[in-house]
Computed example of a mutant assay.
Amino acid sequence: MKWSGRRNSENFEDRRGMSSGGKTIIGGGIIGIVILLLNVFGGENGQMIGTILEQTQGKQTNPTEQRALTAAEIEEGKFIEAILVDTEDVWGKIFQENNLQYERPNLVLFTDSYETGCGSATSASGPFYCPADQKVYMDLSFFEELKTKFGAQGGDFATAYVIAHEIGHHVQTLLGTSTKMRQMQEGKSQSQANKLSVALELQADFYAGVWTHYNQKMNNFLEEGDIDEALSAAHAVGDDAIQAKIQGHIVPESFTHGTSAQRKAWFMKGYKTGDINQGDTFAEIR
């Protein structure tokens, strides 16, 4: 994807090389946390994230000294910031077109561990959006594991897709969708509550597609193979694909994010239509 020449963002925080002196998550990396939660990225229900991070916190770690970032890490940071800038511009435009005001979220890059508004996080958490402080948190080591452990194709647009998905959850927070979903979950059985969680996650995938549609019109940023990279990442993090890989069998009632096919389909619907009004993923469970 083409991303150079973007402006800087006031909402980008690069905390890599710094230690928060917080707690680490038990589980031995993303695979460990997935075995526990069957969840790679995007468990962005505020209550869910807070509970998950609290339950998986381990012992205190000693603060480490700050280190200088490498040239490669600096370039990575510039790339992530460029994606954030594009989400700011696209969603600012979409909200304006709908007579709404877009509040820009912060995106925080960190290494090892970091204190968030939803609790202490590590790379094992996977990228996630915290509604408590309206920030997206990411340890970039996640993307290497996404390729090596979960078979995703990788590539720069796979990273863009994940970030766009997380920003999609911020959009849901601003529109009140996340709050309504949590209210709908009250009094429901676990399987019914899971279906509502799936709808929320698939809508975030749809919003990632809408962002891609708009950003292509605004910046002509896509290159050959980019959409395939996004679809490969979406396939890798489908509940069915994760469960088959981790536990050898699939339990649809426990799905919280949607199948590989659903995640790809909703991303592509957003990308092809560019119409935020066509993303009612809750329709089938009303």
Rank of each mutant, 00 (worst) to 15 (best):
M1E: 13
W3D: 08
G5Y: 11
S9Y: 15
N11G: 06
E13F: 14
R16P: 15
R16G: 13
S19P: 12
S19W: 12
K23R: 15
T24R: 07
I25W: 09
G29Y: 06
G32Q: 04
I33R: 15
V34R: 02
I35C: 04
I35Q: 14
L36V: 09
L36T: 04
L37Y: 10
N39L: 13
Q47G: 03
M48A: 05
I49N: 06
L53Q: 01
G58E: 10
N62S: 02
Q66I: 13
R67N: 03
R67I: 10
K78H: 00
I80R: 00
A82Q: 03
I83Y: 05
E88L: 02
V90Y: 01
Q96T: 01
Q101H: 11
Q101M: 01
E103D: 09
R104D: 01
N106R: 13
N106E: 12
L107Q: 04
L107I: 11
D112C: 00
D112W: 03
D112R: 04
T116C: 06
T116I: 13
C118M: 08
C118R: 01
G119M: 08
A121F: 02
A121Y: 00
A121W: 06
P127I: 02
Y137E: 09
D139R: 08
F143R: 12
F143C: 09
T148V: 07
F150H: 05
G151D: 07
D156C: 00
A158K: 07
Y161M: 14
I163Q: 10
A164P: 02
G168S: 14
H170W: 09
V171S: 06
Q172M: 09
L175W: 08
T177A: 13
M181H: 08
Q185F: 12
E186A: 02
K188R: 15
S191K: 07
A193F: 11
K195I: 10
A199Y: 10
A199M: 09
D205H: 09
D205N: 12
A208E: 11
W211V: 05
W211H: 14
T212V: 10
Q216L: 05
K217W: 05
N219K: 15
N219M: 01
N220M: 07
H235R: 14
G238L: 05
G238K: 03
D240V: 11
A241N: 15
A244R: 15
K245R: 14
K245D: 03
Q247T: 12
H249E: 08
T256A: 10
H257R: 01
W266M: 07
F267T: 05
Y271I: 01
K272A: 06
K272W: 02
G274D: 05
G279C: 10
D280Q: 07
F282L: 10
R286G: 14
